[in-house]
């Protein structure tokens, strides 16, 4: 196994593209190191991307934020303005592992491992985050939802690296939230995870909604029917019930050591309702602050 620590993303991409054997990107390493230790993967090349400046910074852009792929969740969650704008996305990332893990783990690593239960992904999906990918053929931009395919399998081609994720500006009366279900209070993998982002008009009618759903299918889902149940409503109980039913209906979970099909399906709807309520509260608070914080 070789270890490389390039200074530019182009160099990193070239290393990955030219490796004949198995190559792995090392950002936070909180998944990769576990896989290495257990013998699950035995790469020939590990490319550490933490010395690439564009991947380790948070930059304000068009009212939103561009977050480098190697920025740890702890650093992200110390960015007050980012947390104020996208509290749901930040909470999702903040729920990954322990304080210790937070110091290393990255949202993009979480995304690119393509685990269906990745805590930071439903929130990014709900926020319609866009990933910037650099590869042998240059740059491209892809919505986050289009990256995972199945556990450990993504749409990234050989040599491609996600450089950053862009979270657009939140609207004046917009709010997001992420809730997950775990048996303990910390340190578990999500049994169900729901990310919600909603926008309301001045009369309180929901004009836009996105619901991201984790741990209930082969990959994180965007539940359009759940969004439809909310749009046009004032998020009254009837709309929420309909949204919960749509969320549960979208679940295609499995029985495993973390939960049953029955449990995941039901709790997905329960959490979706709770998340919308939090997002609504945040949207209203944001509006009362004039669209800031």
């Amino acid at each position: 196994m070789r270890y490389e620590s390039p200074q530019t993303i182009e160099a990193a991409s070239a290393l990955l593209a030219s490796e004949a054997g198995l190559a792995r990107i090392l950002a936070g390493g909180t998944d990769l190191l576990v896989q290495l230790r257990s013998g699950m993967v035995e790469p020939d090349l590990v490319v550490d991307v933490k010395n690439i400046p564009t991947m380790t910074s948070i930059v304000e852009e068009n009212g939103g934020y561009r977050i480098g792929a190697a920025v740890s969740s702890a650093v992200m969650n110390e960015h007050a303005d980012l947390c104020a704008m996208w509290p749901g996305v930040m909470e999702g990332a903040d729920l990954i592992g322990s304080t210790q893990v937070q110091g290393r783990a990255t949202m993009v690593g979480n995304l690119c491992n393509c685990g269906p239960a990745a805590d930071s992904v439903p929130g990014m999906v709900a926020a319609n985050a866009i990933a910037t990918i650099v590869g042998p053929n240059g740059r491209r931009e892809v919505p986050v939802i289009d990256i995972p395919v199945a556990p450990g399998k993504s749409t990234l081609a050989k040599g491609e690296i996600v450089e950053s994720v862009f979270l657009p500006a939140q609207v004046k009366r917009g709010g997001d939230a992420y809730l997950r279900f775990i048996p303990r209070t910390e340190m578990d993998i999500a049994v169900v995870g729901v990310g919600v982002n909603i926008e309301l008009d001045d009369s309180g009618v929901c004009t836009h909604a996105r619901v991201g759903l984790g741990a209930v299918a082969i990959k994180v889902l965007l539940v359009e029917d759940a969004a439809k149940a909310l749009i046009g409503s004032k998020l009254d109980d009837a709309a929420l019930d309909k949204m919960a039913a749509a969320t549960s209906a979208a679940c295609k979970p499995i029985n495993d050591k973390r939960g049953t099909i029955e449990f995941r399906t039901k709790v997905a709807g329960v959490l979706a309702v709770r998340a919308v309520k939090i997002a609504l509260e945040r949207a209203n608070k944001r509006a009362s602050n004039g669209g800031e914080k």
Binding site: L33, Q100, G103
Partner: peptide, 8 residues
């Protein structure tokens, strides 16, 4: 704060 087992 970091886990030294999660870092090369």
């Amino acid at each position: 704060l970091t886990c030294s087992c999660l870092m090369l």
